[in-house]
């Protein structure tokens, strides 16, 4: 209860501010219409009414977004091109594939970095450099190059997802695999443990809290990557395509509904990773 109240308060404040902003931003169109019709400008009460349910508002009101979200999620057959479930699934599948690819790459690079001096010195700067490239610049390149190789659809988007999500996993795992202190390593060396035994019995389990923190960042980044990857494909399918087609046709309500769908998907994905994290760390006796 004492957690719900503050959250509700913040939500309420946001909704109030949103409605106020909607009135402010959408009133220009109302005044414009009145002027064309030769009518006097409407008073405040009428103005509020006229800004609430416009077809193409500058800023849709919260209830418009919610209605659109509900309609395109529950009101359509899931195979319909207007269904957010359909588009959401297209995006989620690319996100998950990219997440798995990115996580695998990140973990493998981290394992290489901690075991190999040359990789330690060479890989990290490149990994950091890769993340300074604007993803919007590189995404179309990947799509175009892959397309010329005859690969379309899921894979190119997943690659863009992986490009974004490998980095937090790499950074977190390098830190995590190096987290055992000298005493722990000394202990294993008094047992004459091999490098492999040290890795499986000490380094990997020690890195789990770091891994999960990275995975939460990584899966959100994967979703961003998948959505960005959908933009240059020409608005075929996916939440990114919904965003793009919405902006082509000035369908602001559709854009906002897709935005919220993306945010909800991101929250759900992070929550799933969080649940796996709690379960795993509790079973490992490492719950914090």
């Amino acid at each position: 209860m004492n957690r719900i109240l503050p959250v509700l308060t913040v939500v309420l404040v946001i909704v109030v501010l949103w409605y106020a902003a909607a009135v402010q931003l959408n009133k220009a169109w109302v005044y414009d219409q009145a002027e064309r019709a030769g009518e006097p400008a409407p008073g405040f009460g009428a103005l509020v009414g006229l800004t609430m349910n416009q077809d193409r508002p500058v800023l849709p009101t919260p209830h418009q977004v919610v209605v659109e979200l509900a309609k395109s999620t529950f009101g359509m057959a899931v195979t319909s091109k207007k269904s957010l479930v359909y588009h959401g699934w297209v995006t989620i599948s690319a996100t998950l594939l990219g997440f798995v690819m990115g996580t695998t790459l990140g973990v493998l690079l981290a394992v290489g970095i901690i075991h190999n001096k040359a990789m330690d010195l060479s890989v990290m700067p490149w990994a950091i450099a890769s993340q300074t490239i604007p993803i919007l610049a590189i995404a179309p390149m990947i799509i175009v190059v892959m397309n010329s190789m005859g690969i379309q659809g899921l894979i190119p988007k997943a690659i863009i997802s992986a490009f974004l999500s490998f980095f937090p996993v790499l950074v977190g795992m390098v830190k995590g695999l190096r987290s055992p202190d000298q005493m722990q390593l000394d202990l294993l060396s008094t047992y004459s443990a091999s490098q492999g035994q040290t890795f499986w019995k000490l380094r990997l389990p020690s890195s789990m809290p770091y891994l999960f923190t990275s995975l939460k960042v990584g899966i959100a980044a994967s979703l961003v990557g998948a959505i960005v990857g959908e933009l240059p494909t020409g608005a075929v399918a996916g939440l990114g395509a919904r965003l793009l087609s919405g902006s082509y046709y000035g369908q602001t309500v559709q854009i906002w509904a897709a935005l919220f769908a993306a945010a909800l998907v991101a929250a759900a994905l992070v929550a799933v990773v969080g649940a796996v994290e709690r379960r795993t760390l509790r079973r490992m006796g490492m719950a914090r």
Binding site: M183, Q184, D186, L187, T190, L202, P205, M208, M284, G285, M286
Partner: peptide
């Protein structure tokens, strides 16, 4: 060898 800290694996 016994170290100053027990250093047991929490997992």
């Amino acid at each position: 060898y016994v170290f100053q800290a027990a250093g047991l694996y929490p997992w």
